[in-house]
Every structure is written in C-alpha cells, then in structure tokens.
Design a protein around this nucleic acid. Structure first.
Lengths: 113, 113
DNA sequence: CCACCTGCTTACTCACAGGTAACTACTATA
DNA sequence: TATAGTAGTTACCTGTGAGTAAGCAGGTGG
C-alpha cells in the first residue's frame, strides 16, 4: 500500500516531465511530420494544415530548446532551413506509435459508434 | 511520396483525436492514479498533490464523458463516490507506459545532465 | 524596379485553462 | 448545537495558448 503510493508518486513526477515537453496542440503533430523525414518550414506548414507561421515558429523553437529537433540553415537560394529529429526526438517513436494505436482504437470505440 | 503524404495526413488526424482526450495538465495524472485501483475523490486529490477540487471535479467529468472512467455513488455514510477505469480507460495502459518510459529516458538525457 | 519566393517576426486580440478562496449539502457523532 | 468528514460548487481572477493580419529580410526573375 505504502509501496504503491510511492510508485504512484514517482510515476506522476516522470509524467509531468513528459507532459511539459509534449503539451499543446502542435508539438506532437510537428514531431510526427518529421518522422517522415527532414522537412523545411513551408513543408511542415503545408502538412499540418491549420497551423499558422507564428505557432509553427514558436513550437519549433521550443522543440529545439528541448533537444527534440535540430535546425539547419542552408545558404542555397533562396535560403532554406531544414528541421530534423535528434536521437532524442527519434526515441519518441514508440510513444508516438502508442498515441496512434490508441487513437485508432478510440475512433473505433467512440467516434465510430 | 504521395503515399507518404496520405499516411502522414491520416496519422495527424488520429493524433488529434487522442490529444483531445488527454490534453491538459491533469487528465493523464488522474488516469495513472486510477491504474492503481479504484479511488475516491479525496484519495485522488491526496495523490495528485497540487490539484484543486475544482479542477479534479471538472476533469473527472470530462473523462467520464469520454468513457475513460466511471463514477459510482455508494450511499454509505458519509456518501462515498468511487471512480474507476472503463475497459477503454484500461486500454490506455501501453500509452501510459510509453509516456513513463520516455519520461524516464528524457530525465536521464536532459534533466540528469 | 517591382513582384515573388522562403522563412520567419510583430502587434493585436480573445478564449479558456487553471488557480484561489469561500461556500454548499448531507449525515453522523460528541 | 456544533464539529467533522465526504464530495463537490461557485465566483472571481490571471496568464498564456492560440488565432488573425500584416510586415520584414534577403535574394531571383522578369
């Protein structure tokens, strides 16, 4: 019982860490888009239909600060910027898969009925 | 390429479904607390230290509406109310595990350094 | 010299998530 | 009569997540 409480407290702490990184409407979608390969600003914006340049820029910065993605500037013409997942970002694959799995299950159970 | 885009669009749609259910600071913590067994209002509040009764009440209602938990009232004295996970709620176990796994990994990589 | 492309930034606005504090309803027990 | 325990509710406030619209910087093509 006391054991269980400690385990629960620990889980809640670790959960807060994860949630701080993935909170919000846009971060998970952005990460998913990048699992399909490196992408430029405009490409991500095209893929995530409803996102505004402001939100995209803001969330990309946050993800970079959390070491989930990297930003690489190429001095081609016109200048292009490529975003890609870091190893830490790639380590979210299983988590993303489970979000998708559960979302699919949820659709069948609720949205589908 | 076109194939990839369609897959990406589909993933983004399913992701939005999941995110709508688990968004916010409190829902995942509440669900985790309930994976340790059915709990009363006061017990959840004690476990999730910082949550106010207002937020707890509000989020429990939302989770009930999404069929993730059930609310059972016992006319004991004083009246007690027990919350428990539905099968749909229990089906989130793998997702929760991955949140914990990744959170632990993240701590080691970032918070730990 | 003007429009157009990429990748943003800035200003303004609003809704809502979330926090605080006090209060309610019901019952039992002292 | 009053205190305590359960499970909330209500009113009020604030910060910030997010949307809209417009502009900027640096270079290219016509």
């Amino acid at each position: 019982m006391n054991q269980n409480e400690n385990i629960c407290q620990h889980k809640l702490m670790v959960t807060r860490d994860t949630l701080e990184v993935i909170q919000g409407k846009w971060r998970i979608p952005i990460i998913i888009a990048l699992t399909f390969g490196d992408k430029r600003f405009g490409e991500i914006q095209k893929e995530i239909v409803d996102i505004s340049p402001k939100m995209l820029s803001q969330e990309l910065k946050a993800l970079e600060e959390n070491k989930i993605i990297t930003r690489t500037l190429y001095d081609s013409m016109p200048v292009t910027v490529e975003y890609s997942l870091t190893p830490l970002g790639k380590s979210m694959k299983k988590l993303l898969d489970e979000i998708l799995n559960w979302g699919t299950h949820f659709r069948k159970e609720i949205v589908g009925k």
